[in-house]
């Protein structure tokens, strides 16, 4: 059994393209050792000769241990991953990090705000909340253009059980919403039957910060706003130092932080 730093083999069992240079991967265990994970956690993939990088669970491991990720081609490792095909074996470590605070969300009006490629880290929690039956949940998904959107299949599945608003900086036809997600919160509150009692957000930091400030202004307590941060996560176990955020390490203390925590961490240094 390999320890902390050594990956175990997993098999790529399914691949399909989705959005701008993004691709769905389904992975399955090789040795029969399955793992479980919570929504919001992440894992690493290793391709021998190309190193290792962190990715979020798009769907959590099922009974057979299969799980999914949406991966965008941005660097050397993801380029190598895009060269891989069905049945290829690669390395896996995980799960790492904390998760969305499910116990604090169930039964509350939850607004999920996603921007561009920030949707996948919210997918597993959206799955969970939208099928809870007791939790009014809505999603506002903002993108620069329709081409930037990801998770077509997932979004159409969620449509059946929850309200979704999709908005664009540059829509491609007249029927589409324009503007940032914050331009449409009123409309979403109406659909949810009241102002949201909790915010979950992932996307560009500028968008997340704007969303947090907006709801703070509307009297939502900072501990009810959660953001998923991106940092260069490397080891996953809080050792290598790359993902520092003030005195915390995103790979162990995050990637999910409440606005309250973030304000504190950001005040520690001047930058």
């Amino acid at each position: 059994m390999n320890g902390l730093m050594t990956p175990q083999l997993i098999r790529i069992s399914e691949i399909y393209d989705d959005g701008e240079a993004a691709r769905h991967f389904t992975f399955e265990p090789v040795s029969g050792t399955r793992h479980s994970a919570r929504p919001g956690q992440f894992f690493t993939l290793a391709i021998p000769g190309h190193g290792e990088a962190a990715f979020t669970y798009l769907s959590l491991p099922d009974a057979q241990g299969r799980f999914k990720a949406l991966i965008r081609r941005v660097g050397a490792l993801t380029s190598a991953l895009f060269e891989c095909g069905h049945g290829d074996l690669i390395g896996f470590r995980g799960p790492f990090g904390n998760s969305w605070p499910l116990e604090q969300l169930l039964g509350k009006r939850v607004l999920i705000i996603a921007g561009g490629i920030g949707l996948p880290p919210l997918a597993a929690v959206t799955d969970r909340l939208s099928t809870d039956g007791n939790t009014p949940v809505g999603l506002i998904y903002g993108c620069r253009s329709p081409a930037e959107q990801v998770l077509k299949h997932e979004r159409s599945a969620w449509h059946a059980s929850m309200p979704i608003l999709e908005t664009f900086d540059r829509p491609s036809n007249k029927g589409q919403l324009t503007g940032t997600p914050l331009d449409h919160t009123q409309q979403m509150s109406a659909k949810l039957g009241g102002s949201p009692e909790a915010i979950l957000s992932c996307g560009p930091e500028v968008m997340m910060n704007a969303a947090a400030r907006h709801f703070i202004k509307n009297n939502l307590p900072p501990e009810k706003i959660w953001l998923a941060l991106e940092r260069r996560m490397h080891c996953g176990v809080g050792e290598c130092g790359h993902c520092y955020l003030g005195s915390s390490t995103v790979c162990t203390d995050g990637p999910i932080y409440s606005w309250q925590q973030l304000i504190r961490l950001q005040s520690q240094t001047t930058a």
């Binding site: 730093m5 021998p48 000769g49 190309h50 190193g51 290792e52 490397h234 080891c235 050792e239 290598c240 130092g241 790359h242």
Partner: peptide
Amino acid sequence: CSCFTSYDRP
């Protein structure tokens, strides 16, 4: 100081 990086060597 304890920061590290890692890389694959053939």
